[in-house]
């Protein structure tokens, strides 16, 4: 006597298996859809903008004539912005991370700082724009200068670099610290010469990601009142300037079809810059990250 009737089992299992297969395809389709959108987006931008992308576009100043418009002021403005944001966020971000991971005692105050940082990460970027407008542009009367925009952006990306630096510092094993103490090193010497070198790949990766967020943001800079159209280059951090996303925003907002193509060319430049930065971050992570 057969205890198991295979045909009955097959009959009962079949709808469940088919359902499983159908849903697997659905789930896969959803994932592919997200990837497809990325493909379409890149394809659209490249086919639209490639015609305008040449040396003259990189060298050109903004212009009313789409044929002559260029990104020189915006691109150099973006570099200026990076020059302010990078050192400021690194100093304050890494400082905060070291304090929280190495010095802070567990308690209400430390928890408060930690909760505060995670909430700050969720504040819309435009609100940072309002803060920058009031504090840096008006109260400190820095105007729409590189330094005002740079400090605003630094505050915006600070949580990103703090969190990634904390993770990097936390990943350094305790044995390394103990060994350093065992050799008679003080706490700060240990941090500076043992913990930091081990944590630096992680910190740099986070720093680059934070920086790429900063150069892609538009909203806070619009609120600060950065000019959409600027035909000269900044000479110091106290000069007016504009950045790539602002320039793209300006071109996108124009009704003429040609300017949309120019905007697409600007987007290609911006995305290329971001891809380079992200590749460097991935490279650093893979090359220097030690697993303990």
């Amino acid at each position: 006597m057969k205890l198991i009737n295979e045909s009955t089992i097959l009959r009962r299992m079949k709808p469940r298996l088919i359902k499983n297969l159908v849903f697997k395809c659905l789930f896969m389709a959803a994932t592919i859809f997200a990837l497809l959108v990325l493909g379409i987006l890149l394809y659209r931008v490249i086919t639209q903008g490639i015609g305008y992308l040449d040396w003259q576009f990189m060298q050109g100043l903004p212009s009313r004539n789409p044929e002559q418009a260029g990104v020189k002021t915006a691109l150099i403005g973006t570099v200026w912005l990076m020059a302010v944001v990078a050192p400021v966020t690194l100093f304050f971000g890494v400082g905060t991370a070291i304090y929280l991971e190495e010095y802070a005692k567990k308690g209400k105050f430390t928890t408060f700082i930690q909760v505060n940082i995670s909430n700050l990460a969720g504040v819309p970027s435009i609100v940072f724009g309002l803060l920058g407008l009031t504090v840096f542009v008006r109260a400190l009367s820095l105007g729409t200068s590189v330094i005002a925009a740079g400090l605003t952006m630094s505050l915006l990306v600070l949580p990103i670099i703090i969190v990634s630096s904390q993770e990097a510092i936390r990943a350094v094993p305790k044995e390394l610290r103990e060994a350093s103490y065992g050799m008679g090193a003080t706490k700060w010497q240990t941090i500076l010469r043992v913990v930091m070198p081990a944590a630096i790949p992680g910190i740099l990766t986070g720093g680059i990601l934070a920086l790429s967020r900063a150069i892609g943001e538009t909203a806070p800079l619009v609120v600060l009142g950065l000019p959409l159209f600027l035909a000269f280059l900044p000479q110091s951090v106290f000069d007016m300037f504009t950045v790539l996303p602002m320039q793209i925003y300006n071109w996108t907002g124009r009704p003429q079809e040609e300017f949309h193509a120019v905007a697409a060319a600007g987007i290609i430049v911006l995305l290329t810059l971001l891809i380079i930065m992200n590749s460097v971050a991935v490279y650093i992570r893979n090359k220097f990250q030690k697993r303990y």
Partner: peptide, 24 residues
Amino acid sequence: IIKPILEVLAGIPTIVYGFFALTF
């Protein structure tokens, strides 16, 4: 393979999405 690509999607500046919305 897929997770990093999704992360790229999350890292695209919003102004690019705005351009995509308006023109596509």
